[in-house]
Nucleic acid binder design. Structure first.
Length: 298
DNA sequence: AGCCAGGAATCAC
DNA sequence: GTGATTCATGGC
């Protein structure tokens, strides 16, 4: 995408397939704050970035051309042609056509593998607002101070090393509950090299997933999320309660086992499965599709 | 107040 | 192997 440098900001005048609200609120990441309408503060890459959008004009505030080219362009996945992806998905069926049209500004962020691993371990059986809170508390307790903006202190997400002093009771004090030993097991296996997060991108997908699932508290869904959001493995299809509901609602018309949904989608969507999942998830959650009172209607 | 949350481990058969 | 129960915590 074409950009200009303007008074210390990076400005993209004609962003395509980009909606900062869709990107951040679609459930793939947790470390962001809404400042105003289409105005967000993002904590990533050991940095704080403020993003504003007005129609097709996107402003990345107080950043350099070098950071844009080497960090944010990759992080926001700006080199990928999402029009082509949406076109292919939209042709597959009418429901996907609705999802990609309604949530047309989604892009899959290229996030840190370790951060997604711990974040999605924490995410299990929790509402997104609470997940965000826990991750924030964890960062404040163990991360590195970045800066203070508008009177708020911001911290990086702690590395495995930075978490090495944490004991189970320390994590429980942060209210992560039964996930405390899971986080510790993830830290141990990563620090000892028993699980190599850097290898996830290159290995056969089944091997990579099996590796992740040796960590306590990492099952099929969390492993898929780490592979998709933290290792750019777009052929996976994480099935959570929302994806299960929307798939039942649109494709199966009855209660369906997670495994069946997962295998069906991976086969049907192929190397676009991860993208399909994200459009469907955000679409389903936003419109509460398949939830109780709406279930199995229309 | 009770139900649910971007699930997974554990136990019962 | 499948199905039910348990796990901690907060929001609604």
């Amino acid at each position: 995408m074409e950009y200009i440098v303007d008074r210390g900001n990076i400005v993209i005048h004609s962003a395509s397939d980009f909606d900062i609200e869709h990107i951040l609120e679609c459930g793939q990441c947790f470390r962001f704050y809404k400042i105003g309408e289409k105005n967000y503060r993002v904590i990533a890459q050991s940095r704080i970035l403020e993003v504003t959008q007005m129609h097709k004009k996107v402003i990345l505030h107080h950043t350099t051309e070098e950071d844009f080219l080497h960090i944010w362009r990759t992080y926001f996945d700006l080199k990928r042609d999402y029009s082509a992806i949406k076109q292919k998905l939209g042709k597959m069926n009418q429901h996907l056509q609705c999802a990609v049209t309604e949530k047309s500004g989604i892009r899959l962020l290229q996030q840190d593998t370790w951060e997604t691993l711990i974040s999605f371990i924490i995410s299990q059986n929790k509402h997104i607002t609470h997940i965000k809170q826990l991750i924030e508390d964890l960062s404040k307790a163990y991360g590195t101070y970045i800066a203070t903006v508008d009177g708020v202190n911001y911290y990086t997400f702690p590395t495995a090393m930075q978490l090495s002093s944490a004991k189970e009771k320390d994590l429980r004090a942060l209210k992560v509950g039964f996930r405390a030993p899971y986080i510790i097991d993830a830290r141990e296996k990563v620090l000892k090299g028993e699980v190599d997060l850097n290898a996830l991108g290159d290995r056969p997908i089944d091997d990579a997933k099996r590796d992740l699932m040796t960590i306590k508290g990492v099952g099929p869904k969390v492993a898929d999320c780490v592979l998709l959001f933290g290792a750019m493995r777009y052929e996976v299809f994480p099935v959570d309660v929302w994806v299960k509901r929307v798939m039942e609602h649109f494709y199966f018309n009855e209660e369906t086992k997670i495994n069946l949904i997962h295998d069906y989608a991976m086969k049907a969507y192929g190397d676009l499965a991860g993208f399909a999942q994200q459009y469907l998830f955000y679409y389903a959650r936003d419109f509460q599709i398949g939830k109780r009172k709406n279930s199995m209607e229309t």
